[in-house]
Write a protein that binds this DNA or RNA. Structure first.
Length: 640
RNA sequence: GCCGGUGUAGCUCAAUGGUAGAGCACCCGCCUUGUAAGCGGACGGUUGGAGGUUCGAUUCCUCUCACCGGCUCCA
């Protein structure tokens, strides 16, 4: 049998010899690093038998290798848990993007202190270096086996499978139903770490039993594991909740209830900058700003359909025997404004923009700092247009969104087109049409995207843009949604050129989306070191001694008059201390003023990187700052 | 909402079935300071809240609130 290995070496493989044996015999060096193999394009175990054709050796770093590796790590962990907690029932244990997890049904509940113990047992299992064996069983046989073992979840999975034959992986006494492939032996698993413990419902269904999930990660390369653990630390260092406290930006209060944000003075400055940006950019693009109330009668939400599809997320109350709703969305308000007078095709597209604050009930367990709150403000707009204008308008929204995200320093995006969810309104025909238009707008702009089936909103399909931050994490960002439904429900019309009534279509779109969430992402993206134009305080003025206070205030006045956010640190403290405080507050520039500066009308500029430049004329400092703010520069150093 | 964890001074964190402690911050003094912590002093707590067990609870138990890690959902 002729086998072409890695596209270069052709050799005659003896029958009955596994890929691993072949490697050991012919390429012993490779055998040690091999994770799996690909036979004619199919990912298989190293214990598979080669076939005539191409054989590729998959090593760590190759596509698919991490998945195989971590899947085996999950099995080793499951084996360890079974050994330590006999009677544990296994659910599922897949590899995920940065690691793996396994869900267990264990009689006793695990605590984080148990993880090291499990990790140790895993290490022991890897030392045993038990071969991982793939077997093919009759499904019925597997059902009997797992039933006998008391592994009900496995039985349930088996019973739902269509195949007659299933694959089983075995290492030592540990047997698991699994598609594979896996590492050839437990000893091949080298660097791993158990990370956290969590509850997870069997099959993600809250009506099913709650299982205990252990998350972990594994790498073949020790330095990669280290790097990943450093990444986790870095993420913690950037945590907006922590930075929000340290930088005095915002707070939450038990007395006020969870999920509602209090912006402190510095936090409000940053929020104001974001809002100013949005207002001016919307105005530039022909949007008209509107303001709508926070409370609407319940009836309106029946008309809009929210009462049917969004009720669980809405806050209600009753007064004078009348039902009221705290608005969870801004659209109905904008529709009411549209309807205040007859509209003509000449009015379209009509673009209403609102910094609309909405309240949505979120289950207590999902709240998360600014990223998931109950009260938030959206940069929300609704575009009423003709069907013909739809595609162009969607395109403009997308361009607007990308422009804005780039202005705030985000460069990498992922785009998703979400289609009709199960619970939704409108005809299939409308959905199909809207979905098509969205897809075409993306294609026209040459934006690559993937389809997210069933993830649309109840009234229409949508485009979601996810942004990647400085350390590569992605976050939910702008969305553009087509809506053929609400105009119908509210009976919106416009007079066409033919002088007949027509139905407009509507686009819901946000640019930065929820301001709170965007704000949180912004903090994490910059780790609190905001670019000059966003920094709540741009310059800390540090007098060397009391006699420099007058000049310090003069500098402050000059800067403030020109719109630079400057503050004098008047504390009778050492220069070192005042510098330290400014650094910890991540203020872009510290201006030290002493005798020399007073005499020469200069400032000594220290940037956030710790570099100082002395004798900078005040006027020069001011003009350079204004210039950078104007161009929204992300340069951090004074010399940059 | 559910599973697990956590809750002690403004912040970060100790301690313990027997009087609750440190560092930093705040306040007051001294120092008048040149690029990341000058020195001293004073103040500061119903140990998240309510109930229970106990001679005695911050510690053990129950309930509750909030937060953290997830499940699910979403801007």
């Amino acid at each position: 049998m002729k086998v072409l290995i890695d596209g270069s070496v052709e050799l005659e493989a003896p029958t009955g010899m596994t890929v691993l044996q072949l490697l050991l015999e012919r390429f012993p060096v490779k055998a040690g690093s091999a994770v799996a193999a690909r036979i004619n394009g199919r990912l298989v175990d190293l214990t598979a038998l080669p076939e005539e054709g191409e054989l590729e050796i998959v090593v760590w770093g190759d596509e698919g290798a991490d998945e195989v590796y971590r899947h085996t790590a999950a099995h080793v962990m499951a084996q360890a848990v079974l050994e330590l907690y006999p009677g544990t029932k296994l659910a599922i244990g897949p590899a995920i993007s940065d690691g793996f997890y396994y869900d267990f049904d264990i009689a006793e509940s695990l605590s984080p202190d148990d993880l090291p113990r499990i990790e140790e047992r895993m290490a022991e299992i890897t030392r045993r270096d038990e071969p991982v064996v793939r077997e093919t069983w009759e499904r019925e046989e597997a059902i009997l086996f797992f039933r006998d073992e008391g592994q009900g979840y496995k039985v349930e999975m088996l019973e739902e499978m269509d195949e007659d034959r299933v694959t089983i992986y075995r290492q030592g006494d540990f047997v698991d139903l699994c598609r594979g492939p896996h590492l050839a032996s437990t000893g091949r698993l080298r660097h791993f770490r158990l990370l956290s413990l969590a509850g997870a419902y069997w099959r993600g269904d809250e009506h099913r039993p709650m299982l205990q999930r252990i998350y972990g990660t594994a790498f073949d390369d020790a330095s990669e594991l280290d790097r990943y653990l450093e990444f986790l630390e870095e993420a913690e260092r950037r945590d907006h909740r922590r930075l929000g406290k340290e930088l005095d930006l915002f707070s939450f209060h038990e007395e006020a209830g969870p999920g509602v944000v209090f912006y402190h003075p510095k936090g409000a400055v940053l929020r104001g900058i974001i809002e100013d940006f949005l207002k001016s950019e919307h105005t530039k693009r022909g949007y008209e700003m509107v303001i709508t109330p926070h409370l609407f009668r319940g009836q309106l939400w029946h008309t809009s359909g929210h009462m049917d599809y969004y009720k669980d997320n809405m806050y209600f109350f009753e007064k004078d025997g009348m039902e009221y709703v705290v608005k969870p969305m801004n659209c109905p308000g904008h529709l009411l404004i549209y309807k205040t007078r007859p509209r003509s095709y000449r009015d379209l597209p009509l673009k209403y923009f609102e910094l609309g604050t909405v309240y949505r009930y979120e289950r207590s367990g999902v709240l998360h700092g600014l990223l998931r709150v109950r009260g938030f403000t959206q940069d929300d707009a609704h575009i009423f247009c003709t069907e013909e204008q739809l595609e162009e308008q969607v395109g403009e929204c997308l361009e607007f969104a990308f422009y804005s995200l780039r202005a705030f320093g985000f460069e990498d995006f992922e785009v998703y087109l979400s289609t009709r969810p199960e619970d939704s309104v409108g005809s299939d025909e409308l959905w199909e049409k809207a979905t098509m238009v969205l897809g075409r707008s993306l294609e026209d702009l040459g934006i690559p995207y993937s389809v997210d089936p069933g993830e649309g909103v109840f009234y229409g399909p949508k485009i979601d843009i996810k942004l990647k931050d400085a350390i590569g994490r992605s976050w939910q960002g702008p969305t553009v949604q087509a809506d053929f439904n609400l105009p119908q429900r509210f009976d919106l019309t416009y007079a066409g050129a033919d002088n007949k009534p027509h139905r407009p279509v509507m686009i819901h779109r946000v640019v930065l989306a929820g301001i709170e969430r965007f704000y949180g992402v912004l903090i994490e993206h910059y780790a609190g070191e905001f670019p000059l134009w966003l920094a709540p305080v741009q310059a800390a003025i540090i007098p060397v001694a009391d006699r420099h206070l007058d000049y310090a205030h003069e500098v402050e006045g000059t800067l403030r008059t020109s719109g630079v956010r400057a503050e004098v640190d008047e504390d009778r403290q050492t220069v070192n201390m005042k510098i330290r405080r400014a650094q910890l507050q991540k203020i872009p520039f510290s201006l030290v003023v002493g005798d020399r500066e007073v005499e020469n009308r200069t400032v000594s500029v220290r940037d956030r990187n710790g570099k100082d430049t002395r004798g900078v004329p005040l006027a020069e400092f001011l003009s350079r700052v204004l210039e950078r703010v104007e161009e929204r520069s992300i340069a951090g150093g004074w010399e940059d």
